[in-house]
């Protein structure tokens, strides 16, 4: 067994393979922008966070594979003298060094770059526009509080697939001026929006990839997320939590309007029961 493998082709093949894999991966990161174009304020922060990890982790990835390739390529043949210990100091440095390095870069990343942005996403500010998003198999419904600034309460008993998709009730004062839009989320640019998310049936996830926004819709509770859309234009919601057979079709349009246009739309759109 041992003699036959001396001077084996694998001594070349493996390092070449590992290096090719490393080079291809690094090239893919450097020469193509894989992320969907970003269109929200905190989204730029998320991208910054990802870039930081790409650099730090990329360093480890490349260094690790270079060493792997080197060790394989320079390993002795079977008739080389038996292994001689490397020495405790060198071994300690080799093991403890990278361990501490990884710990530091990852914790620094999350504490100083990640957490402040995480804070922005979950901030609660009464000045923000309040919008509600309802998820149900397999569609998204936007619910705006209307002129009174108050969401009408849900009356699940009143739910009707055709006439009352948002399960509101005429007799509730707060409901009358509420706006309900099926399959489309209309948003202002440049103004913070607080989204509260509700599900009528199973879990879904409110995901706008261009905003780097993702928040599960959980029946029984409201979940929250917050963003400032930066650029008027059309985007998409894609459901990011398996919710049944048509999960893949559970999408909706996101339309970001300049602030004045958005305000005008809010003014002119008739309420759900008006």
């Amino acid at each position: 067994m041992s003699r036959r493998d001396r001077g084996s082709v694998w001594r070349f093949l493996l390092p070449v393979g590992f290096l090719a894999f490393t080079a291809a991966t690094v090239a893919a990161v450097l020469f193509k922008d894989w992320m969907p174009p970003v269109a929200s304020e905190h989204g730029k922060g998320v991208d910054g966070m990802i870039t930081y990890i790409l650099c730090a982790a990329g360093l480890i990835f490349v260094a690790g594979h270079l060493l792997l390739a080197k060790f394989i390529f320079t390993s002795g043949a079977d008739d080389a003298p038996a292994y001689k210990p490397i020495g405790n100091k060198a071994e300690m440095l080799f093991t403890i060094g990278p361990t501490i390095f990884i710990l530091l870069i990852s914790e620094i990343g999350v504490l100083f770059i990640g957490n402040p942005i995480w804070g922005q996403v979950f901030k609660e500010d009464p000045e923000d526009f309040q919008i509600e998003v309802i998820a149900k198999q397999f569609e998204w419904i936007a619910h705006y509080p209307g002129r009174d600034g108050k969401f009408g309460p849900f009356r699940m008993e009143k739910y009707d697939e055709v006439d009352n998709i948002a399960a509101l009730w005429k007799k509730d004062k707060e409901s009358r001026d509420d706006l309900v839009v099926r399959g489309k989320l209309i948003l202002p640019a440049g103004k913070a929006c607080q989204i509260r998310i509700k599900s009528f049936d199973v879990l879904h996830s409110f995901n706008i990839p261009a905003f780097r926004t993702k928040q599960d819709a959980v029946p029984g509770i409201y979940t929250k997320t917050r963003f400032v859309a930066t650029t008027p234009g059309d985007y998409e919601i894609a459901c990011a939590e398996i919710c049944g057979v048509n999960h893949y079709k559970m999408k909706a349009k996101v339309q970001v309007l300049p602030l004045e246009k958005y305000m005008k739309w809010l003014e002119e759109e008739p309420g759900f029961f008006e």
């Binding site: 390993s75 043949a77 079977d78 990278p98 990884i102 710990l103 990852s106």
Partner: peptide, 27 residues
């Protein structure tokens, strides 16, 4: 979770270090 990367890295370097000054048999 990020604290776990430390012992994980330690394990990884020990794997890698086991090839240092090796005489590899490529079976």
């Amino acid at each position: 979770t990020l604290i776990i990367t430390a012992p994980f890295a330690l394990l990884g370097v020990c794997l890698l270090g086991t090839l240092w000054r090796a005489r590899i048999r490529f079976n």
